[in-house]
Simulated assay, not measured.
Amino acid sequence: MPDLKKILSISNFSKSQKDFLKYCVFFFTPVILIYCLLEALALQLPITYKSVGEYLESNTSKIELVALGSSQVKCSFNPALSHIPAINLASSSQHHKEDFLILQGVIDKLPKLKYILFEVSYMHLELPYHSQNYWKNNIYLNYYGINTFERQTYFNDKLIYLSNPRYFSSKLKDYYFYKGSENQEQLNEFGFKINNYYGSFHKLKYDTSEINNKYFKIFTHENLDIFKTNTTFLFNMLDYMKAKDLKVIISTIPLYKTYLKKRNPQIVHRRDSILSVIVKKYNNVVLLDKETDTVQFSVRDFLNENHLNPNGAKKFTALVNRKLDSLH
């Protein structure tokens, strides 16, 4: 029987094989070292996820309200202004699937949890969910200690920089090369960006005539199959919350009037019909419907067409507080 040790021994390699092996070592070692450095630097970045994760870890015994959702909720609810201890676990492009997995991941850590705030936005019910390989699963695992992969985790699941090199490269550049600029991210202890004013409306100096003529992207494509799937998932979420004796505030976040005008009315109608069913079916659910509120929310409350700035967040958080007071 052949001696495997001899066969696999480097001394038995040909000169060309040894040269190739040396080339690989010389080439890949610096690459690996660079990625290790980038990973270490990325983990040290004072980004929202890091602040939120630290607040979550140190306040598990106090938190009574969890806010979930996309960037619209992230920009709209400031836990620092909440009447009760709260945390905002919303983030950009976060869908109901991630919301539900995050809730399931934190609920046993929060003994005083009573309230859930989340959104059913204009387009939520007709946008597809992310796959199991969604890059933010790495974020949730590393910063929140929550496994949203829906499977056993592996070593690469714990890597931050490689989960989204473009995102973290941009964050590294902003932090190390543009430190001190007026629009550099400033976070409170809850991970809420308190200087989040420098969006497209600010660039246009809140000139409504300029804003009215500004181009922006809006989702208008209808998908009834996704609507059925997402609606079923939403009801499963609500069943779970009711079983856990949680009081739920479903919100629709204020939108600027130019965005409101371009919404697909059929998508709006289907979404609103589901909200009507939910309010009738679940006695633990209340609706905070502010999507079309153009009276309380003016142009200077907006970052862009569908996100509030901190001024708008102050108003919206006050409305959440009022709704919470009515639930006591």
Rank of each mutant, 00 (worst) to 15 (best):
Phe100Pro: 00
Ile10Phe: 15
Phe227Gly: 03
Phe77Pro: 04
Leu224Ala: 13
Ile249Gly: 09
Lys257Leu: 04
Ala42Phe: 03
Asp99Gly: 14
Asn183Met: 03
Thr60Trp: 00
Lys6Ala: 10
Cys36Lys: 06
Leu33His: 04
Phe168Ala: 05
Lys217Asn: 15
Lys136Gly: 00
Asp245Val: 02
Ser163Asn: 09
Gln17Gly: 02
Val286Pro: 01
Asn321Phe: 09
Tyr206Phe: 15
Tyr178Asp: 09
Leu238Gly: 08
Val295Glu: 11
Ala90Pro: 05
Leu33Asn: 03
Thr48Tyr: 02
Asn212Ile: 00
Tyr154Asp: 08
Phe149Leu: 03
Leu38Met: 10
Leu260Ser: 11
Lys6Arg: 11
Ala243Ile: 05
Val320Gly: 03
Leu43Asn: 14
Thr317Asn: 10
Leu4Ser: 06
Ser71Asn: 05
Val268Trp: 05
Lys97Trp: 04
Asn309Phe: 01
Lys228Ile: 07
Ser58Val: 08
Leu101Gly: 00
Phe302Asp: 03
Asp325Gln: 14
Ser169Arg: 10
Gly191Trp: 07
Ser16Pro: 00
Asn188Cys: 05
Asn183Thr: 03
Leu117Ile: 14
Tyr23Met: 12
Thr292Leu: 06
Lys179Tyr: 15
Asp174Lys: 12
Asn164Thr: 04
Tyr49Met: 10
Lys179Asp: 14
Lys323Phe: 02
Asp99Arg: 07
Tyr259Cys: 11
Phe227Leu: 11
Glu150Asn: 01
Asn156Trp: 12
Asp325Glu: 14
Val73His: 01
Gln184Thr: 12
Ser14Leu: 07
Leu65Ile: 08
Thr220Lys: 12
Asn78Ala: 10
Leu125His: 04
Asn183Phe: 09
Tyr197Phe: 15
Glu126Met: 15
Tyr282His: 03
Tyr122Ser: 08
Phe13Val: 00
Gln104Leu: 11
Tyr144Asn: 05
Thr229Gln: 13
Lys109Cys: 02
Ser11Gly: 01
Val248Gln: 11
Gly145Phe: 06
Gln72Asp: 03
Phe235Arg: 11
Thr231Leu: 08
Leu101Ile: 08
Ser276Gln: 14
Met1Glu: 10
Gly53Trp: 05
Glu182Asp: 11
Ser71Arg: 04
Val285Ile: 13
Ser9Gln: 01
Glu64Ile: 06
Phe177Asn: 05
Asn188Gln: 09
Tyr140Lys: 02
Ile107Pro: 00
Lys257His: 13
Arg166Ala: 07
Ser76Arg: 03
Leu8Ile: 04
Arg270Glu: 06
Ile34Phe: 12
Tyr35Val: 11
Lys136Ala: 09
Arg263Pro: 00
Met241Ala: 04
Met241Gln: 10
Leu38Tyr: 04
Leu125Phe: 10
Ile253Ala: 07
Gln152Phe: 01
Leu255Lys: 10
Pro85Trp: 13
Lys15Gly: 00
Ile253Asp: 02
Tyr197Arg: 02
Met123Arg: 14
Lys18Gln: 07
Asn78Ile: 00
Gln17Tyr: 01
Tyr178Ala: 05
Val268Thr: 15
His221Asp: 13
Ile63Ala: 09
His202Gln: 09
Asn188His: 10
Val277Tyr: 06
Tyr129Trp: 06
Thr232Lys: 15
Leu238His: 07
Arg166Tyr: 11
Ser121Lys: 03
Ile146Arg: 07
Gly180Val: 08
Lys257Gly: 00
Phe219Gly: 01
